[in-house]
């Protein structure tokens, strides 16, 4: 299996602090890969480095063999690597449907002037946007609240909306930022199934950053574990569960316990 996304020796320093240190791993096509780690392990930083919302200090991220690190976020999105945000980052005063329509920017065939002048291409686009929005909303189970303002949605629906916005760009890789944070087990299960169906039904490769362990063990094909900015383990969920370094990172080593 060839790697779709390759993280190669990525390092990020903020002044004297090394947030991510020489991290490498591959994401295969059609895989669900999770990056986990205790608080402050550098997960979020790594996430931003992959989506180019931060510049790397050294190392690089390759997508389909081409470098995507240190580009502008919209260029990375255009290549097919799209990130989602946590639920507070939405288009607050747009409806669910409007959000998913505007997110189809990369599917547009007409130019901005074309939309202004109302050319045939632009009109066809607008129709296609609407149709695809309806299809996506149905797929995500949001069709019942298509015309609700995003700011009125409960948390669970906001997550789904965030994923729908990401999907509307036709991504090849979708990066999910803590998709299960703050959810009860039942909501988590529903979201796990949703994410899995995004991969299965739409063929989207998924890389997610998360610290809800049970959900990660359930959903992931493979897991990468970070601690203090370094990769300490990589493997299938069962390998990770039995990895001593991982257990140590999460629970503290015997020595630490004595220290306390």
């Amino acid at each position: 299996m060839s790697a779709l996304l390759q993280v190669r020796g990525v390092t990020k320093k903020f002044g004297g602090l090394t947030a991510v240190n020489d991290v490498s791993f591959d994401v295969a096509e059609n895989e669900i890969l999770s990056v986990i780690g205790p608080n402050g392990a550098g997960k979020s930083t790594l996430f931003k480095l992959i989506s180019s919302f931060l510049r790397t200090t050294s190392g690089e991220v390759l997508f389909q063999g081409k470098r995507i690190s240190d580009l502008k976020p919209h260029v990375v999105a255009r290549r097919g690597v799209v990130r989602t945000f946590q639920e507070t980052t939405i288009f607050k005063s747009m409806t669910v449907r409007e959000s998913v329509i505007v997110a189809q920017h990369l599917r547009a065939k007409a130019s901005l002037a074309g939309y202004f002048l109302g050319t045939a291409t632009a009109r066809a686009d607008i129709e296609a946007f609407g149709r695809y929005a309806d299809e996506l909303l149905e797929f995500m189970g949001l069709d019942g609240i298509a015309n609700e303002l995003a700011s009125n949605l409960p948390q669970g629906h906001l997550r789904a909306l965030g994923i729908a916005i990401g999907l509307a760009t036709d991504p090849k890789v979708l990066l999910l930022d803590e998709p299960f944070a703050g959810m009860n087990p039942e909501e988590t299960m529903r979201t796990v199934n949703l994410v899995r169906s995004v991969r299965d039904a739409r063929g989207v490769t998924i890389l997610l950053v998360e610290h809800d362990m049970p959900a990660v063990m359930n959903i992931s094909d493979r897991i990468v574990v970070l601690n203090f900015g370094e990769k300490i383990a990589e493997g299938t969920p069962s390998e990770i569960q039995n990895n001593e370094k991982v257990i140590e990172a999460y629970l503290g080593s015997a020595d630490d316990e004595v220290g306390i």
């Binding site: 976020p73 919209h74 999105a77 799209v82 288009f91 747009m94 505007v102 920017h105």
Partner: peptide, 17 residues
């Protein structure tokens, strides 16, 4: 529509390309 998306959240707008 794009302007409104930027007015509401520029980061999210850039993430959708």
């Amino acid at each position: 529509h794009i302007c409104r998306s930027m007015q509401q959240n520029e980061e999210l707008a850039s993430s959708i390309g």
